[in-house]
Amino acid sequence: MLELRLVQGSLLKKVLEAIRELVTDANFDCSATGFSLQAMDSSHVALVALLLRSEGFEHYRCDRNLSMGMNLNNVSKMLRCAGNNDIITVKADDGSDTVTFMFESPNQDKIADFEMKLMDIDSEHLGIPDAEYQAIVRMPSSEFARICKDLSSIGDTVIISVTKEGVKFSTAGDIGTANIVCRQNKTVDKPEEATIIEMQEPVSLTFALRYMNSFTKATPLSETVTISLSSDLPVVVEYKIAEMGYIRFYLAPKIEE
């Protein structure tokens, strides 16, 4: 028996919107720790890891570990039927081939339940080792989204370089080139508007902008984004989900031929 009640149901709606462009089908894993997902995109270039900790739910019952295969477009269709202020409850019985999403309006005058068929998904689970990163950049998520969008109108790849001067995002295409430098800026009115760079040593890596733009679909989940970079490692683009967990996107770098 599984029963997860999330008062801030809009979080779940935002999570689905954040990942459904990147991943088509995925297993949602439920355990005592929380509600999690790990999935690769169809090209096996990027990986998304989601964790919503059990403590973040108003009610969390998970009698035994359960893995539920879902088509994310179908989940999204169901969750789009929930109001932004609705309380969402996810329910499943052991051994059942369906999951139920229950939506309650804030004043309890409307209750809806949507039952969705589960699917068998044979997915690889990758071990992600802890790594020390050469540079970690924290910046406003909206700023990062804007940079990725702007650069993708010029080129297909972005070179992210971190030096003591700041973080530079560069691209080149048929019509020309673009460079955007963000300097460390801690003296802002609100902490979420700061750009903070922790650099052990300079690093420069190249990534496909298509994936970066897809990661920025998670922007509504968090005001800040953390970008962790090391030579010869996938970049980690992390959006924290307030007091509940995170979405982390891993993207393999491009290398020179």
């Binding site: 689970h125 990758l126 071990g127 996938p234 393999a252 491009k254 020179e256």
Partner: peptide, 14 residues
């Protein structure tokens, strides 16, 4: 030109 690496180059399957 650059080559796109795969994610499983970096992370092992469990």
């Amino acid at each position: 030109d650059s080559i796109q690496q795969g994610i499983s180059t970096f992370f092992e399957e469990l």
